[in-house]
């Protein structure tokens, strides 16, 4: 397996808070890497730096052999890195179908002033996408009327619509009802494996981590405390004490 994304010595502080304090991490092509760690550890900050939302104060990020440190989000998306958000970022005045369609149109090229967004081809793809995420029932609902779980899934669906090669997901299952969680992750994992997407996801549910990740990175105060297969990392006494003890699902 080869390295797809490599972060070296990433640093970023907000005032006195070190949100990234020397992050070294190599994400391998095709793997599912889970990020765990307590609130405020810097998990979202890592995703924000990787996707160009925040510029690191030190260190570098390489993707597929190319340095992408400090590039704008748009430039990074174009290279095949997608993301979903801890707080879903949907077009609230559009329907779920329109949200999906806009993401599909964004991939195909949005610069068409006279063809309708909801053309036959785009509608078909949007419907198919939404059905993969089990969102058929709420296709015509406006995005601001959805419950938290549905908003999360629609948010991820929009990222997937861009057909990224690397997808960074920030707490994909928070807000999804506990009874549906495993089924949702199951579906998501299948969709991603079919599309050969490499995935990095922040997750607070250790059952999900155990079952769906190839490796786990443990974040604590802007550093990576441990990295390895879930079977080892989740049994490491230090990790148990430092992280899992205080990382009870907070959603």
């Amino acid at each position: 397996m080869s390295v797809l994304l490599e972060a070296r010595g990433l640093r970023l502080a907000f005032g006195g808070v070190k949100a990234a304090d020397g992050i070294d991490l190599a994400v391998m092509r095709g793997e599912f890497l889970a990020i765990i760690g307590p609130n405020g550890a810097g998990k979202t900050t890592f995703i924000n730096m990787t996707t160009g939302y925040l510029r690191p104060q030190g260190g570098s990020i390489h993707y597929d052999g190319e340095e992408i440190t400090g590039l704008a989000p748009r430039a990074i998306v174009k290279r095949g890195i997608g993301r979903s958000f801890q707080l879903p970022q949907l077009f609230t005045e559009h329907t779920v179908l329109q949200n999906a369609a806009l993401a599909i149109a964004a991939r195909r090229g949005v610069w068409q002033p006279f063809a309708p967004l909801l053309s036959v081809g785009v509608i078909d793809e949007a419907r198919e996408l939404l059905s993969r995420f089990g969102l058929d029932g709420i296709r015509e609902s406006r995005a601001d009327t959805l419950n938290e779980g549905a908003r999360k899934l629609a948010d991820i669906a929009m990222a997937v619509a861009l057909r990224p090669r690397l997808l960074l997901m920030d707490e994909p299952t928070s807000g999804v009802a506990a009874s549906e969680k495993m089924a949702v992750v199951e579906t998501l994992a299948r969709v991603l494996r079919e599309a050969e997407v490499t995935a990095v996801f922040v997750e607070h549910d250790m059952d999900v981590v155990e079952r769906f990740s190839d490796r786990v990175a443990v974040w604590s105060q802007g550093r990576i405390l441990a990295l390895g297969p879930p079977g080892e990392v989740l049994r490491d006494p230090e990790v148990l004490r430092e992280v899992i003890g205080v990382a009870a699902p907070h959603a």
Partner: peptide
């Protein structure tokens, strides 16, 4: 059109547009 709907997207979620490229 996609452009017009994206225009409306500026009102509600401009960051998303950027993260869609």
């Amino acid at each position: 059109s996609p452009m017009g709907e994206a225009l409306a997207g500026i009102k509600t979620r401009e960051t998303r547009l950027e993260f869609m490229g």
